[in-house]
Design a protein around this nucleic acid. Structure first.
Length: 346
RNA sequence: CCGCCCUUAGCUCAGCCCGGUAGAGCAGCCGACUGUAGAUCGGCUUGUCCCCCGUUCAAAUCGGGGAGGGCGGACCA
């Protein structure tokens, strides 16, 4: 694979790359390392899946991929996860992530998993935290974290440590590239400022888009119907996608199209399969697409109606998620221990 | 350590002073209209009123105790 192909593979389906030339240099020098961190908080969903699917691209491009299960971060962020549940949730996150990587057609064994507390308790790391804490203003830290850390009437200091620690993670994991959703942008821009003053280079950044919620607007963790969960069965998926905001001919805030572009088509391509839409003769009969772009074109033109599209998307999403769902069903203790209130032993 | 404030529907809150077993907005659900959804109309649901004890015929409301949360003061050798 030549340099241009590698760069295209690394940057496809992304929201932003900071910066393309930096990324080009890293790829020219060899096989750079890339990392993404997930704070094991609420249940993983289809949004995680899209960012994880891209790890398959990274692996294929020859990058060293590390997934950080940022357990402490999950607690620092307004105690989203109780301290006592960090281990259980970390186990669940790693297992679910591995299942998604496999479902995306890549080898989970090729990815290195690291737990935050594996290195964040070291003297060196702690000293780095104290020093960056001294150098960073409250306003700067708050601004960096604003898109990630939960807003609260009574914010804790933990939310201020959060972006500092994430910056230090880049160095501790010796990552050349920091990868994450575009909501992570503020934090990695801070990391790019801080790290050069602490004996490390500024990371290049690759940002994935955040999927729109199915009920319009942003995807919300508190809104069950706004997203497809990994545990949703076929029926639940059909119901959610069937009820999704999806104005004919419009792309803005259209989660249904985004599911196709960022998850369904990439996975189908990996498997060499095509996307089939069953449509009544009265509306023109069945359709088959090999790529997303022509489908979007037809949708924007009005040649493809949402009512015909939705059932096909639901079926495809169900197929993509099925092996992940199976893993979670086969190992019920993962969810039961991570979320005892929801899946508690009965 | 001291003082003050808050806790009522999924969310934000009103009601408490002057006891009569609970309301609004938003959300949600169901219909109508669209070949989906949304928007727009029409309709509907929801509550250990933080917990315990007491006063009373009757307590979200009054009294006492407790829990959780917030704010401020004091201490600054």
């Amino acid at each position: 694979m030549d340099a241009a192909d590698r760069q295209a593979l690394v940057t496809r389906y992304t929201e932003e790359v900071v910066t393309e030339p930096e990324l080009g240099e890293l790829l020219a020098d060899g096989d750079p390392s890339v990392y993404i961190g997930y704070a094991p908080t609420g249940e993983m969903h289809i949004g995680h899946f899209t960012t994880i699917r891209k790890l398959a691209d990274f692996l294929r491009a020859g990058l060293d991929v590390t997934v950080l299960i940022a357990d402490l971060h999950a607690h620092l962020d307004d105690e989203k996860s109780p301290y006592e549940l960090l281990n259980a949730r970390s186990r669940y996150y790693q297992a679910a992530t591995e299942a998604m990587v496999a479902a995306a057609g890549a080898d989970p064994e090729a990815i290195e998993f690291v737990r935050g507390t594996d290195f964040q308790l070291s003297e060196e790391y702690a000293l780095g935290l104290y020093r960056t804490a001294a150098e960073t203003t409250l306003a700067r830290s708050r601004r960096a974290a604003s898109e990630v850390v939960r807003e609260s009437d009574s914010p804790t200091v933990g939310g201020l440590f959060y972006p500092l620690m994430q910056s230090l993670d880049v160095r501790a994991l010796e990552a050349d590239i920091a990868y994450g959703g575009i909501d992570q942008r503020g934090i990695y821009m801070l990391a790019r400022e801080l790290l050069p003053e602490h004996g490390w280079h500024a990371p290049a950044c690759v940002f994935a888009p955040l999927l729109s919620g199915l009920s319009g607007g942003k995807m919300s963790a508190s809104e069950a119907d706004s997203k497809v969960n990994l545990t949703d069965d076929r029926e639940a998926i059909e119901e959610k996608i069937g009820g999704a905001y999806c104005p004919a001919g419009e792309r803005a805030d259209n989660g249904v199209l985004e599911y196709l572009e960022y998850l369904v088509f990439p996975v189908l391509a990996e498997r060499g399969e095509r996307f089939v839409i069953e449509r009544p003769e009265e509306y023109g009969g069945d359709l088959v697409y090999e790529a997303y772009e022509p489908l979007e074109e037809a949708f924007l033109d009005g040649r493809l109606h949402p009512a015909d599209l939705k059932p096909a998307v639901a079926a495809a999403v169900d197929e993509v998620i099925a092996p992940v769902r199976a893993t979670l069903t086969d190992r019920p203790e993962l969810l039961a221990e991570a979320y005892p209130e929801t899946y508690g032993d009965d």
